[in-house]
Deep mutational scan, measured.
Amino acid sequence: TFVALYDYESRTETDLSFKKGERLQIVNNTEGDWWLAHSLTTGQTGYIPSNYVAP
């Protein structure tokens, strides 16, 4: 799992909003700078900017 370093507000319907400190499970990280992730807090799935999270 990864932890959010910053808050992120989604800009498209495929993005995932999250708050700093939220735990995220990475589903697919082969898309370059945008990873498909599942929030362990909200249960939602969407794309996140990879530079906003850390292991």
Rank of each mutant, 00 (worst) to 15 (best):
D7P: 06
L36D: 01
Y52F: 12
L16A: 06
P49M: 07
Q44S: 09
T1L: 15
L36W: 11
E31Q: 14
L24P: 01
F2R: 03
Y8D: 00
S50P: 08
A54G: 10
T1S: 09
A54W: 10
N51H: 14
E13K: 08
G43I: 01
T45I: 13
R23H: 15
D7K: 04
K19Y: 07
D15L: 07
L16F: 13
P49K: 07
L5I: 10
D7V: 02
N51K: 13
G43E: 05
F2S: 03
G32R: 13
K20Y: 06
T1E: 13
T14W: 15
F18Y: 02
T1Q: 10
I26Q: 02
N29K: 14
L24D: 01
G43W: 05
G43R: 05
S10A: 15
G32D: 13
G21I: 01
L36T: 04
Y47F: 12
L16D: 01
Y8H: 06
G21N: 05
Y8I: 01
T14S: 13
L5P: 02
Q44R: 14
P49T: 02
A54N: 08
P49R: 06
G46D: 00
T42C: 02
S39N: 14
S39G: 02
S39Q: 04
V3L: 09
T12P: 02
I48D: 00
N29Q: 14
P55H: 10
A4N: 01
L24E: 01
D7Q: 04
T41C: 09
Y52S: 13
T45K: 09
S17C: 06
T41R: 11
W35V: 09
I26A: 07
T41H: 10
A54D: 08
G46L: 01
T41G: 07
L16P: 03
L40I: 10
A4E: 00
G21A: 03
R23Q: 15
A4Q: 00
V3K: 04
S10K: 12
L5W: 04
I48N: 00
E22W: 04
W34H: 08
S50H: 08
P49D: 06
L24Q: 00
R23G: 07
S39I: 04
K20N: 04
G21V: 00
R11H: 12
W34F: 12
L5D: 02
A4F: 01
T45M: 12
N28S: 14
G32M: 11
D7Y: 03
K20R: 11
T12W: 13
T1A: 08
A54K: 12
E31Y: 13
S10I: 04
V3A: 04
S17M: 04
